[in-house]
């Protein structure tokens, strides 16, 4: 097929195909790179499809930049090809998703894995809190959209903001945007909570740790967001049918 031929010509290897983007591994000017290519969805009206694809590519790049500037680790962006809806970005070295990390830990020390995950939960909370305090909404917070990257022992990346030799990296910002309202931040947390609990059952205690450290990372104003979160949780239970 034409698309595969193009990828081969570009020396890219397909790593993963999500619902709306293909993730390739390749190089950019000799550097290891990840290429995220959004593709057309045949079920969508063409105008809507084009609009969403462009919007989400832009939103992703914007959100990555905003996060970096406030000290949240994200991949560097090397090139944005708006013709083919591709983002060429840094291939974050030696990393696994937080989802895989939690699953691995669960397998290897099932009894104690919740307490072993505490430092990670603290870091996640603090990072999301920091992000929200600057009115940056991720839009799709899940444990698959967070990476843990092993830091190099020396060089400019050594030391700094770390978690036991790992750095927390946020990715997949296609649904991201900027908003100051507690409602949007509450929804962002709600999405994370649901994703967390449905993917990693019996980790309610961990999510509480995330929220505790969210407040610390956010500072003043966090209480409003937590209250909103509570309200949003109740909405599902309160929904009444209107004729």
């Amino acid at each position: 097929m034409a698309a595969e031929g193009a990828a081969e010509r570009d020396q890219m290897v397909l790593l993963k195909q999500g619902a709306e983007a293909k993730i390739y591994s390749g190089t950019f000017m000799g550097r290891p790179a990840i290429i995220k290519e959004r593709f057309s969805k045949a079920y969508r009206h063409p105008d809507l499809d084009k609009s969403l694809t462009v919007q989400r590519t832009k939103a992703e790049v914007r959100s990555i930049m905003r996060c970096r500037m406030i000290g949240i680790c994200t991949p560097a962006v090397y090139f944005v090809d708006m013709e083919r809806h591709r983002i060429y970005m840094e291939h974050v070295a030696a990393s696994i998703t937080v989802r895989e990390y939690i699953a691995d830990l669960e397998r290897s020390c099932s009894a104690n894995h919740v307490s072993a995950l505490r430092p990670l939960a603290e870091k996640i909370g603090a990072t999301v809190g920091l992000m929200h305090s600057h009115n940056v909404i991720h839009g799709d917070l899940t444990t698959s959209n967070m990476l843990l990257s092993r830091l190099p022992k020396d060089g400019p990346d050594a030391g700094g903001d770390t978690l036991d030799g790992y750095r927390l990296v946020l990715i997949d910002f296609g649904l991201g945007y900027k908003e100051g309202l507690a409602e949007d931040k509450g929804v962002d947390l709600y999405v994370l909570e649901r994703a967390f609990l449905s993917t990693h059952p019996n980790t309610e205690a961990l999510f509480s740790v995330i929220l505790e450290h969210y407040k610390l990372g956010y500072g003043k104003g966090a209480a409003d967001v937590i209250n909103k979160l509570e309200e949003i949780r109740m909405r599902g239970r309160k929904r009444t049918m209107v004729g």
């Binding site: 839009g139 999405v191 649901r194």
Partner: peptide, 13 residues
């Protein structure tokens, strides 16, 4: 004719 309307997806919601 297609009128562009607010399209709101937040995570899985």
């Amino acid at each position: 004719k297609f009128l562009e309307l607010p399209y709101v997806v937040k995570g899985m919601d």
